[in-house]
Amino acid sequence: MTSFARRLRTLAVAFALGLGAAIFAAPAITSTALAQGAPASPAAAQEELLFRYLQTQPQGRHGELVGRVSIPDPKAATLIQPHGREFQEAWRSTMKWVGAVAILGMLAVITLFYLVRGRIRIAAGPSGRYIQRFDGVERFAHWLTASTFIVLAITGLNISFGRHVLLPLIGPEAFTAWSEWAKVAHNFLGFPFTLGVVLILLLWVHRNLPDSTDLEWLAKGGGLVGHAHPPAKKFNAGQKIVFWTTVLGGAAIAVTGFIKMFPFQFIATDVYGMQLATQIHGIVGFVMIALILAHIYIGTLGMEGAFSAMGSGKVDLNWAKEHHSLWVDEVMNPTRKASLPAGAKGAGAD
């Protein structure tokens, strides 16, 4: 070993020891300095101390190091935000796991359910008589939300998983071209989606308040587990869960979505807030996608007679009796007509 290299090594060791001492001394020195009313910040010679001290300053709420900068952009004054590393990990690993498990897990559950249970038929067979279930306004609100949701889900998943799934298949240029379009679509469709969720809330909230029939429905597994047909009003407990997930999840996803669309403008005015909004938006999105997959399955392939409710707006009487017995009573029994909301007409029921 040359003497130069030896000298360097001695230097490095001395250096490491010095730094170690500074770290150990940090809390003690800071607190005594503060206690004595001495200059509130540590002396220049103690950089490590200074670093820690600055992180405790009000601007450095999340461990950032904030100073003054001559550029007229307040964000530029943040020298270091170490939690960028945490966001990196959250986005690269936590979010992807949550998303993959929620969505692939749900697909697996649906497939398994289909294999075991098959398509749920109308037990008494179609009656050929139809009753009106959803009027035009209701169906408009549903399809406005549903169609925009599907595009938002695909374009959102493209942000989270596209670089792993699609990019290797179509190459970087094509992937960027598609992602630009996907981004524009995602940004603009956020508005009609939000409108759809608001309409759904206004139209259906009074039918989705939890009540005692829900407990019985849930206790009997909703007829999904086993072949019972527990009584239900217009919306059974499962549908109420979908309703509240759509409304509450939709609200969370809209707020965080608009934060992401207008970064640093409102609510989240710093990088930490933007990181949080990104994580909440993604995770709520994954959970909603998983739940809506189940909703789509049971509304189409999974159950005979269900789709027409949102298609033509009418359902087969036997289907209605099996799945929404209390609602059928309500619609068919004129003495209770007074309590009917405007949308639930008895049209075509006899």
Binding site: I80, P172, T176, F264, V271
Partner: peptide, 23 residues
């Protein structure tokens, strides 16, 4: 290839990524 999503600015510990326009 960049689509200007702004994610790199959220992750960068040093505020390095810059954009021509505000989002």
């Amino acid at each position: 290839l960049c689509i200007g999503c702004g994610y790199c600015f959220y992750a960068c510990p040093f505020g390095a990524p810059q954009y021509p326009r505000l989002g």
